[in-house]
Design a protein around this nucleic acid. Structure first.
Lengths: 339, 339
DNA sequence: GATACTGATGACAGCGCTGTCATGCGTCAA
DNA sequence: TTGACGCATGACAGCGCTGTCATCAGTATC
């Protein structure tokens, strides 16, 4: 294995006694090369330690094997799971990912989409469906498969995988009411468009049930965390002391509420019902176990890559395909008051 | 903004009335181009919506602006923080990252290192310092800056950022003993080399203190999670009922222990001391707050990129430079027994 | 026996950019 | 005035690979 100098495809070709183009084909589409030639080429590749140069390939073919993934945050637990699903599904393919981090800014998102598209990616995954008009236009004229992730909405640009955050949040709110809670509140951090829709569902659900208390909602644009959950809950109690349940925008917040409730000797679920969102692994392990609206984030990532791979393989879904992964209300001890 | 066809550097050049090479220089090293030419070029770039083609650049120059990051897991909380630090520090630079996921396999790690290096990256970040001899050799002859992340050890291949996991774990164990716990146990998941060293420190510390109980250690190669913490702790209690404290390999586990202890009506810290590792944000928010050995994972990622950027800018650290970020024992209520 | 077709392989050019060397011009010391 | 030097710019070639055609057996069809 010669490591000091770059081995090129031509060197492999002469070692195998074929022309460079045949080696290229053996790599890209083995079926087009005779088994004997293939065997000699494979042997030469192994012997020389040849690794293809992706830059040269991209330049010559005008395509890359890179899937762009544009998400608001690399640190958020939720996107961490999605990312894992993406890497999972990439296993065994020649594709790689290029992450872009919008930091929840539509301007950065638009710029990233433009830059990624200019590199002729094999596919593009973007979080949400709230792109700016210009970004949307760019995605519509993209020559690669595009998947909008996290959320299914009215009109996918190309394909979409996710769930209805409105419906999911509604289910959480309805669950609290069913359990007999009469003064539920909403706690939200990182109020991105999906969180806004979740809040809207909460408000609509309460209004629909004729619960007319004055908007027991505490939100913040800060990124979500457990300690933020503690603070938001403390804030809520000082504003709306009569609160008997909280629907949390996500599980970090819910866990913070659980801890803060314990600190204040509030009994969960008797004095306070808690419902989270996403159903992170720890919610079921908590004491008491915390109810949450489960979303399958791993599967979201996997499915997104699956759609792209299928499309690249020519057997993909048509434009406009939306895959609704749904949600599941995980009713646990933290809301089991009986009602 | 013409979006349908790719704008090339030559088109920008003719629009600006200069030669292509001048545009190239204006992009790569603006100081080498006269201010007037630069202004006209910038104008043309904006007007045409030009975006450079990284593949062509990589092919022509033999370099890329990609930093390879090879980590065991994309989902693990710890690496999530490190990754965030990396993205943080990349902000405002032309560099991008390419993630590689070893899934804790030295074989995959070696392969990834080889593949990444063959693409002439701008830099390479690898987790830990337990590379296989072949991988180590490949890294040693790499032409780019290499940073070993997470851990500082005897002989960095090039540069290293991290901490001594042995020392950090020792501090946790010693803290439990100082607080008067006499039968501490160790709970570990995902027993990678760093975890092994943490376990070793625990054993050595207990032995040093003359505590000769028979190895109260429960470990598993499974990935760590809160519910796994519950199970490991249940397991531990059935094996070593006399346990009065646990040092956890990481915070997920510690949180699981906290929940499981509550489920069993064990009082924390009186009946049971709990100390985690890493000090995830939620530990301080828990009730009772959980002690942990804090590591600055964000800074680790940031510093790694910082070292690479400095080196690329020609003002970097010499080979062999190791940056020890240390650790801090966060003594909280979960171990505050007084002793 | 001539034509059409299939399958394996090759020749050639060029993807968009940058490294290297060359050029032309103005400035300064001798 | 001359030569040396620095600065901005340009010409040329080529990075490693693949798309597009062309070629050439070998087989099938009438």
């Amino acid at each position: 294995m010669n490591k000091s100098r770059k081995i090129t495809l031509s060197e492999v070709a002469s070692a195998a006694g074929v022309s460079p183009i045949t080696v290229s084909r053996a790599l890209r589409d083995p079926a087009k090369v005779s088994p004997e030639a293939r065997a000699r080429i494979d042997e030469a590749i192994r012997e020389l330690g040849y690794v293809p140069n992706p830059a040269a390939r991209a330049l010559a073919s005008g395509r890359t094997d890179v899937v762009g993934v544009i998400i608001p945050s690399v640190s958020n637990n939720v996107f961490g799971d999605v990312t894992r699903g993406i890497y999972d599904a990439l296993e065994g393919s020649a594709l790689s990912v290029q992450m872009g981090n919008t930091r929840y800014s539509p301007v950065i998102e638009e710029k990233l989409i433009r830059v990624f598209l200019s590199q002729r990616p094999a596919g593009l995954i973007v979080a949400g469906h709230d792109q700016s008009p210009a970004a949307r236009a760019a995605l519509e004229s993209a020559e690669c498969p595009v998947v909008q992730l996290m959320e299914v909405g009215p009109a996918p640009i190309d394909m979409a995988v996710g769930l209805s955050h409105y419906d999911a949040s509604w289910a959480g709110a309805a669950h609290l009411l069913e359990q007999g809670y009469r003064a539920p509140a909403f706690l939200g951090a990182q109020m991105d468009p999906r969180s806004q829709r979740r809040l809207q569902a909460f408000r609509d659900c309460l209004a629909g049930a004729g619960i007319g208390i004055d908007d027991p909602v505490v939100t913040t644009p800060e990124p979500s965390s457990v300690s933020l959950g503690c603070r938001l809950f403390a804030d809520l109690l000082s504003r709306s002391p009569g609160t008997d349940a909280v629907l949390c925008n996500n599980d970090d917040i819910a866990l913070g509420v659980l801890f803060e409730a314990r600190r204040r000797n509030l009994r969960v679920p008797q004095d306070l019902g808690i419902c989270g969102f996403n159903d992170l692994e720890m919610m079921a392990a908590a004491e008491p176990a915390v109810s949450s609206v489960a979303t399958d984030r791993l599967e979201m990532g996997r499915a997104a890559i699956g759609l792209i791979r299928d499309r690249l393989a020519g057997r993909g879904q048509p434009r406009g395909h939306a895959l609704d992964l749904g949600f599941r209300l995980m009713a646990r001890a933290s809301t089991r008051r009986g009602g």
